[in-house]
């Protein structure tokens, strides 16, 4: 395997964006990531992005994103209709082939134009599930209920995740959930969909994020402390919720094993958990004990740019390495209802 590292990361300040469209949000983020990489834009060998037509409410919505890139002369470029963490995976594979030595990866999306809870319903089996319109929060609530009933967690545990995430998000300029309430205060609030309260759910965020990858010597040349991708893998589970034990995440566990997590725990873990209950499920799947600093960025509960939030986890984990806060970090991304599909990326300093 070639050595590949994250050499730069940029994100917009997530929020509801009533004024700017996707391209206007994305363009400065791409520019910032490219400039921070130290690699001239036209020397970047591959570009790959993640976004979703149903978020935008338009077919071919990713096409306009090309306008943000300065793709002239024409560029080698691809797109996944997935969270951009999977775009990073495609780019990593391209570099492994030797077809590129560097790559720009970005994700973007606006969740605010539509009802994101309902939009995500269209991810479900079109014959048996989607016609019933179970929304994404209700499905996550079913999952949370299974977790609570399993005895592995309590509502107080959920609130502790929320309180910690809000505290951390307040210190992150990329996040926008800034209410620093304590656990008891949060537990006193009403349910949104029992057993989930509003603070158990990710906020509605618009934004974009970008990462630049570079191989071996190029990474060393442009970056003082590259965040090396030691392993990356992703796995999917059955779609039908009835076929899964929702209180566990075997695909996360398997992806971590394939990525080479092994028995040495990371110092930092950035987990893509849009619901508090999902963080607890992921922590168990990854065997993260109390010594691991989870989501110092505030996680998806601090800002949840759908289609970029997974890539942001990789960017944040890489930042913790590049800024010397950690020498080994884990990033995770998820897709689909109730953690159906999961990606694990293991990053290390030299």
């Amino acid at each position: 395997m070639r050595e590949v590292a994250v050499v730069s990361f940029a994100q917009s300040a997530a929020r509801r964006e009533p004024a700017r469209n996707e391209v206007e949000i994305l363009m400065p983020v791409v520019t910032q990531a490219v400039e921070a990489s130290g690699i001239p834009r036209h020397e970047i060998g591959f570009t790959c992005s993640g976004s979703c037509d149903y978020l935008a409410g338009q077919a071919f919505s990713f096409v306009s994103a090309v306008d943000a890139l300065g793709a002239w002369p024409p560029i080698v470029e691809s797109h996944v209709e997935m969270d951009a963490a999977w775009a990073l995976y495609e780019a990593w594979a391209k570099i492994q082939c030797g077809m590129a030595d560097s790559a720009l990866v970005f994700g973007f999306g606006k969740s605010s134009p539509g009802e994101i809870r309902d939009v995500l319903t269209l991810q479900l089996d079109p014959y048996y599930l989607a016609p019933l319109w179970p929304d994404t929060v209700s499905l996550a609530a079913i999952q949370a209920r299974v977790l609570l009933e399993s005895g592995k967690a309590s509502e107080r545990d959920l609130a502790e995740v929320a309180a910690r995430s809000r505290r951390d998000a307040a210190a992150n300029p990329g996040a926008h959930q800034r209410d620093p309430s304590g656990v008891d205060e949060l537990l006193a609030r009403d349910y949104l969909v029992s057993p989930l309260r509003v603070h158990d759910c990710a906020p509605i965020s618009d934004g974009a994020a970008a990462v630049v990858l570079a191989a071996g010597d190029l990474a060393r040349k442009v970056c003082d402390r590259p965040a090396w991708i030691r392993g990356i893998d992703h796995r999917i589970e059955p779609h039908a919720l009835g076929l899964r034990d929702l209180a566990t995440s075997p695909s996360t566990r398997l992806a971590a094993e394939k990525a080479g997590l092994g028995s040495v725990p990371p110092e930092v873990a950035e987990l893509h958990a849009p619901f508090t209950s999902q963080e607890l499920i992921l922590r168990e799947a990854l065997s993260l004990d109390a010594g691991v600093r989870v989501n110092p960025s505030g996680g998806a509960l601090g800002a949840n740019v759908v289609m970029a939030a997974g890539l942001v986890r990789i960017g944040e984990a890489a930042r913790s390495i590049r800024e010397g806060e950690a020498s080994r970090a884990l990033a995770h991304a998820t897709s689909g209802p109730c953690l159906q599909q999961n990606l694990v990326c293991l990053l290390e300093a030299d």
Binding site: C52, Y54, A59, L122, P126, I236, G336
Partner: peptide, 13 residues
């Protein structure tokens, strides 16, 4: 485009 079938990210299903 997913709108051809009305299923968002159908690889999940």
């Amino acid at each position: 485009p997913d709108m051809f079938e009305g299923v968002m990210m159908p690889e999940l299903y």
